[in-house]
């Protein structure tokens, strides 16, 4: 059924399309501005205004940034806490979620409260710092991994998913004498791929973008993660490649190049992120 649109509707549609064109452009332009600065020569970058294209195209800034040992180290560190963080967080979290999903177990109510309380109340940054220090993890990348190793909110999301799985599969496996451990790894986890993917991505994004914990727990330069290094570079507290280059050109173009390089990994996985985040929000957002 096709209904002819009135003039008013057509005007609205046109404005609506233009509105989203403008909104998208406004969202995207700041990124493009940064790209243009990073490829421009120093003098032209400082002229400012709207950039449609780099002025005085050159890649000097990128050469400088990519030759920096610090950036590579920070990149590797961020990758380390993200990959290990995801694996450990999802495995441990799913384990707790599986335990809590069994309503008939003795202590179920207690465990449920144990999870909920840790969502709505926490000790705050200083007491957490003291405990991490007490376990000997200050200035270790592992601090950032253990702190993400079991996120109670994600446990609740996974628990809800496990509880909605058909119970007949598990029951018949139990009847055949399979242990819960075997059932967990061979039946429950494979059936839960959608929620595991979603939670993995939540953890990955928060680990990759985490700044506060990096700032608190990592003080040694060799332990810096990417957001902390970027912040230092932007603030001019660090030059990119060492000391001597600062005077030459560790200026705006180099900062811009650093930012663009830090953006690349996110852009590479973005189509994947978008797909699974969108699914995930149905699992969690309304409930949470």
């Amino acid at each position: 059924m096709k209904i002819k649109k009135s003039t008013g509707e057509r005007i609205f549609d046109t404005f609506n399309i233009l509105f989203f064109f403008t909104f998208s452009l406004a969202t995207f332009y700041p990124f493009w501005h940064e790209v243009c600065i990073s490829f421009s020569d120093k003098v032209n970058a400082l002229r400012g205004g709207i950039f449609l294209w780099p002025r005085g195209f050159n890649v000097e800034a990128y050469k400088l940034v990519l030759s920096s040992q610090y950036l590579i180290t920070a990149f590797t560190n961020s990758l380390f806490i993200t990959v290990l963080g995801v694996i450990i967080s999802v495995m441990l979290g799913a384990g707790v979620a599986y335990l809590v999903s069994k309503k008939h177990l003795p202590g179920h109510k207690f465990l449920n409260m144990f999870i909920i309380i840790s969502i709505i109340f926490n000790g705050g940054i200083i007491p957490t710092y003291l405990i991490v220090k007490g376990t000997g993890l200050v200035d270790s990348l592992w601090a950032l991994i253990v702190l993400a190793a079991c996120t109670p909110f994600n446990v609740v999301i996974m628990k809800n998913f496990f509880q909605n799985l058909p119970s007949s599969l598990e029951e018949s496996a139990l009847m055949d004498g399979a242990s819960p451990l075997l059932i967990f790894f061979r039946i429950v986890l494979p059936l839960s791929k959608p929620v595991l993917a979603t939670v993995s991505i939540w953890v990955a994004v928060s680990q990759w973008n985490d700044y506060m914990r990096g700032l608190i727990y990592l003080t040694d330069r060799s332990n810096y993660i990417l957001p902390v290094l970027i912040r230092d570079i932007i603030n001019g507290q660090s030059d990119v490649a060492g000391q001597e280059v600062m005077s030459e050109s560790s200026t705006e173009t180099v900062k811009a190049a650093t930012i663009i390089i830090a953006l690349v990994p996110i852009l590479m996985v973005y189509p994947f992120l978008q797909k699974h985040f969108t699914k995930g929000i149905m699992l969690g957002a309304v409930k949470g």
């Binding site: 441990l92 979290g93 707790v96 335990l99 991490v132 079991c150």
Partner: peptide, 12 residues
């Protein structure tokens, strides 16, 4: 199965 995660929760 749940114990390792619970220990982490308890500690941190």
């Amino acid at each position: 199965i749940g114990l390792p995660g619970l220990l982490i929760l308890f500690t941190y």
